[in-house]
Nucleic acid binder design. Structure first.
Lengths: 195, 195
DNA sequence: TTTGTTTTATATCGATCGTCATAAAACATG
DNA sequence: CATGTTTTATGACGATCGATATAAAACAAA
């Protein structure tokens, strides 16, 4: 197998993720990636392909982990209301800890890249749909077992919860004193409790 | 006053707005602006300053109009619930008509430019705060006159409504069959109606 | 008509962009 | 040790980036 690689693939992809995530696609150059990964640009091309391919690679990696995290929250046998609580707690905690204001990599992609790139638009749409489905199924389960009392359609509620999630992700990118995200979530749970 | 300008300032700024709005800051070059405004790049520099100044100029113009639109909705003497209805109707209609998936210029700026530019971050924060205040005052008024029955804090509700707005703006940028935005809004009004 | 001022168009600056040709270096296999 | 394969580093390609120097063109004021 010839000359061995001198870099750790996971470390390099993680560094590349950080650059694209914080600065976006256009504002991140291949030389910037090289500097922050410790590789040279030809090595990056040889190992992972061109700039777009690398972006796709690290975004897929990010999405995989994000959806695994979602699966862990909603796949547990926690009661639906408790799962939703964990979902928003995780979202708020991640936002609070986001000192660099990276927000959500998928949402950033949705606004900068997706509008003029069909492949990434499909990816983003797919992620949003899956999150919406997690929320919808969870809410529907809660309505079935009576722990969620509202009679509003689970489909509508899921879309609202998804939109609130995306809105929080937008706010996270501009930060400031706007960490009062609990205020966003509180009425959502009040909504689930009402008849 | 020397040689007269050969361009119409408003037409040029409108064209520049469209380019920055649809493609973002980094993906829009000065030559692209020149092509779509009918001006040459030196004329653009002479008339409006450098790229950042032009972006700021057209964004300010956009914000002014957007806030005027908000002021018209919430400044009318419509009952609070009716004002909120008009607010979301306008948002949904604008999104439906947004064939180019431009979304909201301010939200796009919040994600691409604001994180690494304090001036634009201040602008975005200011706009979000003002919209939140419109919503909060409107909801508080409705609670005072009894047309909004929920006892939830108007501050929390306003933050949720703002987040939902931003979420819709994110969805608008990826479009597809996701025009079921009425589903997002329906539970919000149900929330206002409940005790 | 002359002078002064501003906008125009041409042409181009150095810097940086994404990408790659090239060949030396480091291994496995024979 | 020799051969083949892959990764490495150097250096540079053409294209495009934001921004300007320059001077002609078009007006107002004198």
């Amino acid at each position: 197998m010839a000359r061995p690689r001198e870099f750790d693939e996971d470390t390099v992809l993680e560094a590349a993720t950080q650059r694209f995530w914080t600065n976006g696609y256009e504002a991140t150059s291949m030389r910037d990636l090289a500097d922050h990964t410790g590789m040279t640009t030809p090595s990056l091309y040889n190992a992972f392909g061109d700039k777009r391919a690398i972006y796709r690679l690290v975004l897929d990696r990010y999405v995989r982990r994000a959806l695994e995290s979602c699966s862990a929250i909603f796949g547990d046998d926690d009661p639906p209301l408790r799962a939703l609580e964990r979902y928003f707690d995780a979202l708020i905690e991640e936002t609070r800890a986001d000192a660099l204001q990276k927000g959500c990599f998928v949402v950033n992609t949705a606004l900068e890249v997706a509008p003029h790139d069909a492949d990434f638009r499909d990816l983003v749409t797919n992620v949003f749909d899956r999150i919406e489905k997690y929320l919808r199924d969870c809410i529907a389960n809660g309505q079935s077992d009576g722990t969620i009392r509202t009679k509003l359609p689970a489909a509508d509620l899921a879309r609202l919860f998804l939109s609130a999630t995306l809105g929080i992700r937008v706010l996270a990118r501009t930060s400031s004193e706007r960490e009062l995200l609990t205020g966003v979530v509180r009425p959502l749970f009040a909504l689930l409790r009402t008849k």
